[in-house]
Nucleic acid binder design. Structure first.
Length: 761
DNA sequence: TAGCTGGAACTAAGC
DNA sequence: CCGCTTAGTTCCAGC
């Protein structure tokens, strides 16, 4: 599933030089000149990441030219000397300008012949860098597909000029302008041709219709022209894969609003011609299991905001981004050929609610929302889904769309007046055709049965000393529970929304209630355990008490574990199946050793085991219960999907969350690094991330604060310095998507790099 | 009328 | 290669 990219394949370099950014503003290279002259987006753009949408961004690395304050940016691939003292990494592209007199297709200004993609001369201000890190806001309210045009004046090089105060301004003056265009897809379309997708789609696809500029992920020369491509018609699709929908949305759209300084309001803008993978074969970034991004700090320079595929914590210091109301587990996404299917709704009705806790400033902030993956890998933008801005009289939340590295974002204000709470009633989900996405070069994910998504929320807080040096921003992210977006799956697949208990002694026998939907009289509940190699080691069916079960509740008796003599807690998974290939996602369950209760004094305090402090009405013996639905996260993703994990090779056998991290990982951890007052580098392997720092405990007032606590990582990362504990932490923020293998790898790499960094140079 | 929603037909891929 | 099943995509109809 992963790209297979190995560390050694990461060829491009990442450099960062703050001081020279200004000096180099007169870069002679045409690729930079026009870019540098561009107006800023509302948010400073992080450096180009050169990655295609859906690909993992490379983690930042130390500056090659000169280290500066330990901050890192990823920059484009190939080296271009832009000044005597500075070398930028830029993609190699071939672009030939053509005159405005040349013919173009009326719709998009581009056309294909066998060998070339011709791009029209465009307003030099009109381009978009699809790789821009923190994309600038587009004024276009249009949503896909009616709003494919994302123009962003921001570019990779813009980010080099972004000053800290700009971020502050951006966050302060997050302004929303009313939409001048409808955002929903333009209603139903008539079939006019039976030609099947994808090769002869009856319509242009998200990729095909809109553009078709190749995404370098960098600021390509802003002069327009023709890009040399070897694109035999027969392989048009293959060629177009470079022109992925997410990379190359292009359309004429109105001039931007205040977020984008006007150039010529009457002039249509267009993305810059960029070139894709043919010339810049950017590796599929880090293999998900290898990324160390999780180890970085959530604090970034304001001009180096993290890419969307970087895992971020949901909590840092007193700040926490949390989901107060989770979305429903089902939401039928709409295709481009359909009308909007509305905004994602919440289970109790209404819509999801997201809140930033601990923020007492008066400055409003912006909450970014995008559609992320929901597999057992780290959260990243979902290649087959995009966020869709829903408008209408029923939508009360203002929002703006933007693009970041090919991923559409909604930006929603977080205002102090509303207690930094946002009602997410404007976020729909657009489904892109699998065939369109899968043909993109470098795309390794398959769309088939890849229909679970999450809503991912991210915000950036400007931090002031003493929390961080000036100009630093704190990036927090939280992801919703998985959302099934397929109509069919939503109708057929059983879904577990909660379970009444999450652990009991190994002898089982405890009654457990599974709450969810699509349960049938024939539904079965199975407990299973996988080995570290991902192979099924044990599976046992739980007896279902049909009399006590309904279509939304299954009452089962927990089966005994295979080995009642275990001395350590055992994490297993349970799922509901309605038959072959109709399985729910898995939820974690822990078997506790028989002696555990006597040996572990903490277990004698069952209240400490309650997540969210919700005491069950009738706690059964031998069990530890908690309210399943945690506000800030979801446990479901911790377990591999039973229907797919078997094909994935080694996977974590179960919950790689804190619960599973408890299981004997502490002895693998490297020595405690000396704490930093704040992280200079988000990627210093030899220094602890804030989450590692004991001085920044995520749970300052935790009732179990006497025990070392896990990091406040919502996303995966190395296990923190909690030792010994074999219990579930109260209020522990969920750690998502970390597998046993990842943990081991993180640890091993940390140890290696620690040793390396410790050596005198 | 446009947008939202549920349902189902049609089609391709997989088995 | 064929038939069945499954899943993705598109269209229709009702509200």
């Amino acid at each position: 599933m992963s790209s297979g990219w190995e560390e050694g394949e990461l060829d491009f370099k990442l450099i960062f030089e703050e001081e020279q950014q200004h000096q180099d503003s007169t870069v002679s290279d045409s690729q930079l000149t026009s870019t540098l002259s561009q107006p800023m987006g509302i948010l400073p753009s992080p450096p180009p990441s050169n990655h295609r949408a859906g690909m993992h961004s490379p983690p930042p690395r130390r500056a090659l030219v000169r280290e500066f304050s330990g901050t890192y940016e990823s920059l484009p691939a190939r080296s271009v000397q832009v000044s005597e003292s500075r070398v930028l990494e830029c993609p190699s592209i071939q672009i030939t300008t053509i005159s405005p007199d040349d013919d173009f297709t009326p719709e998009g200004g581009t056309y294909w012949d066998r060998d070339r993609l011709y791009l029209p001369l465009l307003d030099p201000y009109c381009y978009r860098d699809s790789s821009m890190g923190a994309g600038s806001l587009s004024p276009s309210p249009a949503s896909s597909p009616s709003s494919r045009g994302w123009l962003s004046p921001a570019s990779s090089c813009d980010s080099l000029l972004v000053e800290d105060e700009e971020l502050s301004e951006a966050t302060t003056h997050f302004c929303l302008s009313p939409s001048s265009r409808p955002t929903s897809p333009g209603g139903k379309k008539r079939r006019n041709s039976p030609l099947p997708s994808p090769s002869h789609s009856r319509r242009g696809s998200y990729s095909e219709e809109h553009v078709q500029f190749l995404d370098t992920g960098d600021s390509a020369p802003q002069s327009q022209g023709q890009i040399e491509l070897s694109i035999p018609q027969k392989t048009r699709k293959t060629s177009l894969e470079q022109v992925s929908s997410r990379d190359v949305e292009l359309e004429q759209i109105p001039a931007p609003n205040t977020s984008c300084p006007p150039s010529d309001l009457g002039q249509l803008r267009r993305e810059p011609p960029t070139l894709g993978m043919d010339y810049l074969s950017v590796p599929n970034t880090l293999g998900w299991g290898r990324t160390r991004a999780s180890a970085h700090s959530p604090i970034f320079r304001s001009n180096a905001l993290p890419p969307l595929d970087w895992p971020l914590p949901c909590q840092f210091d007193q700040y926490e981004l949390r989901i107060d109301v989770q979305p429903r587990p089902h939401h039928r996404a709409h295709y481009e050929t359909e009308g909007s299917r509305g905004a994602v709704k919440a289970s109790p009705g209404g819509h999801p609610v997201v809140k930033l806790v601990g923020y007492a400033e008066r400055q409003p902030l912006s909450l970014q929302v995008f559609v992320g993956t929901a597999d057992d890998r780290s959260i990243r933008p979902h290649p087959f889904y995009q966020i869709h801005r829903v408008t209408g009289k029923m939508v009360g939340t203002a929002s703006q769309e933007s693009m970041q590295a090919g991923t559409k974002l909604l930006e929603i204000p977080l205002n102090p007046e509303t207690n930094m709470t946002a009602l997410i009633d404007c976020a729909g989900v657009l489904k892109l055709r699998n065939s369109d996405i899968e043909l993109r070069k470098g795309e390794t994910d398959v769309g088939r049965k890849n229909t679970r998504v999450r809503l991912v929320f991210r915000t950036h807080l400007p931090l002031a000393p003493p929390l961080a040096p000036p100009g630093r921003v704190l990036a927090l992210q939280v992801a919703s529970q998985p959302i099934e977006c397929s109509q069919r799956s939503a109708q057929e697949l059983p879904t577990i929304e909660s379970i009444s208990i999450t652990s009991c002694l190994v002898d089982g026998g405890v009654e457990l209630l599974v709450n969810g939907s699509n349960f049938l009289p024939t539904s079965r509940v199975l407990f299973m355990e996988r080995g570290s190699d991902g192979k099924l080691q044990w599976e046992e069916e739980a007896h279902v008490d049909r009399d006590k079960s309904t279509e939304n509740v299954l009452c089962v008796r927990v089966p005994a574990y295979s080995d009642v003599c275990v001395s350590q807690p055992v994490c297993v998974c349970l799922y509901v199946t309605n038959g072959k290939r109709k399985r729910s996602s898995t939820h974690c369950f822990k078997y506790l050793p028989m002696l555990c209760k006597e040996e572990d004094p903490l277990l004698s305090r069952p209240s400490l085991l309650l997540l969210d402090g919700v005491m069950p009405l009738c706690p059964p013996p031998h069990s530890h219960e908690y309210s399943y639905t945690t506000p800030g996260g979801y446990h479901d993703e911790f377990c591999p999907q039973p229907e797919t994990s078997e094909d994935r090779g080694p996977v974590n056998e179960c919950d790689p969350s804190f619960q599973s991290l408890e299981l004997g990982f502490s002895e693998l951890l490297p020595p405690l690094y000396p704490p930093h007052p704040w992280p200079d580098s988000p990627y210093l392997s030899s220094s602890p991330s804030p989450s590692h720092s004991s001085s920044i405990s995520p749970f300052p007032s935790s009732p179990v604060s006497t025990s070392p606590l896990p990091p406040p990582l919502q996303s995966h990362g190395p296990p923190a310095y909690h030792q010994e504990s074999h219990m579930t932490f109260i209020g522990a923020p969920p750690m998502q998507h970390i597998t046993l293998d990842e943990v081991n790898e993180f640890i091993g790499e940390d140890i290696r790099m620690f040793h390396t960094d410790s050596r005198p140079v």
